[in-house]
Every structure is written in C-alpha cells, then in structure tokens.
C-alpha cells in the first residue's frame, strides 16, 4: 500500500486540458463483470479510463447502445461476455455474436473506424485477461486519439 501512495505522489497533477480516452464497456453480469471483480480482488492494476455498464447478458446488448455511447463522446466501446459455450443463459452470447457480426459489417460499410469497437470474451476466472484487455484497448485508443471524426459529423448534423 505504501508503494501505491508513492506512485501516486510521483505523478504530476492531472492538467485540466489533458485529453483522456473515454471508453464505455458493455459487459455481462456473469462472466466479464465477475472477471473484472476478480481483477480487483487480485489487485491487478490497470488503466482507469473504462466505464463499465453491467447487463445481464451480452444477448441484451442492443447495437444502438454502442451508437449511443459514441454519440455521447466515447472514443472506444468494448463489448465483453462469456466465452462461446459458457453463457449463463445457454445461448445469449451466440445471439450477441451473430448480431455483432452483422453490425460490424454495417459500421464498416459506413466507413466507421472499427478499431474503436472491441469485442472479446472474458470469463469470471480471467481477471488478468480483463486487465490486459483494458490496457490494450486504452493503449490503442490513445494511439488513435479522440474520436473527432464522429464528433465533427455529429456537430455538422446538428446544424
């Protein structure tokens, strides 16, 4: 715990202007949410830029949630649930997978930068995987920078 404090002390104060990636994650209650809990109980430190929204199952995730997240200024969106075959509800994740496959194609067709939408499977036992995934995604979004294209389009359409 001492080292934690020292690390915090060493860092410069967050400047008001500095851009921080905003990432919204839609996760299922049984696998990925519990996996993220495990990362916590295992004290695996990872990037603090992801905001988790818990749903019962990836099958519940409406693709319009993803659009809405971008509309609200997200620079990246994550979707994660139980591994295929392990769904708490038997088959919800299969429906999600199929739905997202079609959705991906549609987004791609619209010229959407698909690097900003990340689908993955994280089980309740994969705390480390969750932490690694978040770090990877945050790194990737940092590289890509703020999602200006979308925000600009949004601003235009508002005019």
């Amino acid at each position: 715990m001492v080292s934690d404090e020292m690390e915090t002390e060493g860092k410069p104060a967050l400047s008001e202007k500095e851009w921080q990636p905003k990432i919204i994650a839609f996760v299922c209650n049984w696998c990925t949410y519990a996996g993220a809990d495990l990362a916590g109980t295992s004290r695996i430190v990872y990037e603090p830029h992801v905001r988790v929204i818990k749903l019962p199952c990836t099958g519940r995730i409406d693709v319009s949630f993803i659009i809405k997240a971008f509309e609200q200024g997200a620079d990246g969106v994550m979707v994660s649930g139980c591994h295929p075959g392990d769904c708490h509800y038997t088959a919800g994740n299969y429906h999600a997978r199929r739905r997202f496959a079609g959705f991906r194609d549609l987004l791609e067709f619209c010229g959407f930068d698909m690097r900003r939408v990340i689908f993955s499977w994280v089980s309740a036992a994969e705390g480390k995987k969750w932490a690694d995934l978040v770090n990877e995604v945050v790194g990737k979004i940092r590289e890509l920078g703020p999602f200006k294209e979308y925000q600009n389009l949004l601003a235009q359409s508002a005019l």
Binding site: D4, T8, K11, A39, G40, T41, R43, V45, Y46, P48
Partner: peptide, 10 residues
Amino acid sequence: REHCSWVHTD
C-alpha cells in the same frame, strides 16, 4: 472497490 480503488493507483 473491485472495479476502481483496487485496480487503479492514480
């Protein structure tokens, strides 16, 4: 806690 204080240092 699990999703915040235990996994972040800043």
